[in-house]
Amino acid sequence: MASQGTKRSYEQMETDGERQNATEIRASVGKMIGGIGRFYIQMCTELKLSDYEGRLIQNSLTIERMVLSAFDERRNKYLEEHPSAGKDPKKTGGPIYRRVNGKWMRELILYDKEEIRRIWRQANNGDDATAGLTHMMIWHSNLNDATYQRTRALVRTGMDPRMCSLMQGSTLPRRSGAAGAAVKGVGTMVMELVRMIKRGINDRNFWRGENGRKTRIAYERMCNILKGKFQTAAQKAMMDQVRESRNPGNAEFEDLTFLARSALILRGSVAHKSCLPACVYGPAVASGYDFEREGYSLVGIDPFRLLQNSQVYSLIRPNENPAHKSQLVWMACHSAAFEDLRVLSFIKGTKVLPRGKLSTRGVQIASNENMETMESSTLELRSRYWAIRTRSGGNTNQQRASAGQISIQPTFSVQRNLPFDRTTIMAAFNGNTEGRTSDMRTEIIRMMESARPEDVSFQGRGVFELSDEKAASPIVPSFDMSNEGSYFFGDNAEEYDN
């Protein structure tokens, strides 16, 4: 783990906690998980779902989305002020799938948001429990990260689609708070800032007046979040320049895209947490497990152990491969979309394939898809080993990566060399080191050039047997250095459309 220093740990961010010791953190995270579980059980009762239907990941996603929508204050306010045809701002819903006479049927349900809020609060001892809501947002974000390569979004903001390893959390809503900021990748933060800068260039009043003052505060806050992700002084200094700019424009845009590229080699610290679907927490609570009393951590053995003992089902389209669908969801559960496939294969105990080789589309089923041909199958979400999630980018030494994705962002704290394609990355730096950030740029390029592919990161860190909950005997895996390590390699994943 990167030293926490003055930073709060993510469990504290996750639970809005002030400084807590490890036991208190485990208890408050457990409380959050228990609340999600209780809410899910109650919703299944309301909807009269069978046990099997309640364990269907598509039903879980609909129920999670309903509660997130019920608590989305800004959108609710907007919907009330701008009524649109056929949208009731006070209601929320989605597809629920039921097994009827041996076939899967889709039923569109509609609930009062007020009623959903009441059920959620009741499951969370009367609190709004925003930490639990954020947790579900991060699960949705991790699922998107594993399912889609955001080529269009990258290109629109002047970045290269091969930089997708920097895009963790790119679909997280803005209201996801400190826990959300911690899991956002460098590219995601750059993209958010670039969008602001572009608006400022096109709209003279963007930075002016009372609204402009708020915009400015948001801009500086985002700059500080991004600065905190960088691990070298030169990158941090460049972020200070971007933040202090009187009138952010093209120079800042250039600096930010430069920094994003540099992060492929001088990786930023991005938190990883295993956020599971509500249909995993519900049955665990129903079986009598007391998360608050037992304590829970999002970055240790607990999620692995929970998945070892969970039964989750998914709808499967006619030509999809259930094992591939399982891999997709497994990666999402562990926030591992940008991790090295060699490491993932070792931990999972079966070969993890790149996205383009998977015969599976996303987990969600569109409303126009034919239910007649839908089957369902068990998702295999178990693992051979477990490993500690990392909050750091690993040290800054790398190795060759593949054509589709030119770097990785480690999820697990496991000893290995970190793949990246130096030639491709360095070719993108057209040696432009003039301007006010020239000395920093020169320094950053120097550090990137001296990074050695064969150097090892996370020295001495290994994986653990599932029986080793105290992480007492690390097993340090050895990897084939020459092997392909990137998930979005030469990829044809669908595009994420909101």
Rank of each mutant, 00 (worst) to 15 (best):
A2S: 08
S3G: 12
Q4A: 10
Y10Q: 05
M13T: 15
M13A: 06
E14A: 07
T15A: 04
E18K: 06
N21P: 01
A22V: 14
T23V: 13
I33W: 04
I33H: 03
G34R: 10
G35N: 12
R38N: 04
F39G: 09
Y40G: 00
Y40E: 01
I41L: 15
I41E: 02
C44D: 01
T45P: 08
E46Q: 11
L47P: 06
G54Q: 10
G54T: 02
N59G: 02
T62C: 11
S69K: 02
D72M: 08
R74M: 11
R75S: 12
N76Y: 10
K77Y: 02
Y78L: 02
L79T: 10
L79Y: 02
L79M: 10
E80R: 09
E80H: 04
P83D: 00
A85M: 03
A85H: 01
G86N: 02
K87W: 06
K90I: 15
T92W: 08
G93Y: 07
Y97P: 00
K103A: 15
M105Y: 10
E107S: 11
I109E: 04
I109M: 13
L110F: 12
L110M: 08
I119D: 04
D127G: 12
D127T: 09
D128K: 08
A129S: 13
G132P: 10
G132Y: 05
L133Q: 14
H135N: 11
H135F: 03
I138Y: 01
I138G: 04
W139L: 13
H140W: 11
S141H: 03
S141M: 09
N142L: 00
L143R: 02
Q149L: 08
A153C: 06
L154A: 04
D160C: 02
S165C: 11
S165D: 04
L166M: 11
R174M: 11
R175M: 15
A178M: 00
A182G: 14
V186W: 07
G187C: 06
M189Q: 04
V190Y: 04
E192M: 08
L193Q: 15
V194L: 13
R195C: 06
R195Q: 02
R199C: 08
G200K: 09
I201N: 08
G209I: 08
G209Y: 08
E210M: 05
N211M: 07
K214W: 05
T215H: 05
I217P: 04
A218S: 10
E220A: 11
C223A: 12
G228F: 12
G228W: 11
Q231I: 14
Q235A: 10
M238G: 05
M239R: 02
R243M: 13
E244W: 02
E244I: 05
S245Y: 01
R246I: 06
N247R: 10
P248A: 06
N250S: 13
D255H: 09
D255A: 06
L256I: 14
L256M: 12
G268C: 06
G268N: 02
H272D: 06
H272Y: 10
Y289D: 03
D290V: 08
F291E: 07
F291M: 15
E292L: 15
G295A: 11
V299S: 10
V299K: 07
G300A: 11
I301A: 12
I301D: 10
P303Q: 13
F304Y: 05
R305N: 13
Q308D: 00
Y313V: 12
L315T: 01
P318L: 14
A323S: 07
Q327V: 12
Q327D: 05
V343E: 12
V343H: 03
L344G: 01
I347Y: 03
V352E: 10
K357R: 05
G362R: 12
S367L: 09
M371T: 06
E372C: 04
T373Q: 01
M374L: 09
S376I: 04
T378R: 15
L379K: 02
E380D: 12
R384Q: 03
W386D: 04
W386K: 04
R389H: 02
R389V: 04
T390C: 04
Q399C: 05
R400P: 06
Q405W: 01
I408T: 15
S413D: 05
S413R: 10
N417P: 11
N417V: 15
N417T: 13
L418S: 00
T424K: 01
T424C: 15
T424G: 00
I425E: 08
N432G: 15
T437D: 11
D439Q: 03
E443P: 03
R446D: 13
S450Y: 09
A451I: 05
P453D: 14
D455A: 12
V456Y: 07
S457K: 07
G460E: 10
R461I: 02
E465R: 05
E465W: 06
E465Q: 11
L466Q: 13
I475S: 07
V476T: 12
F479D: 01
M481H: 03
M481I: 13
E484R: 08
E484A: 09
G485Y: 09
E494N: 13
E494L: 14
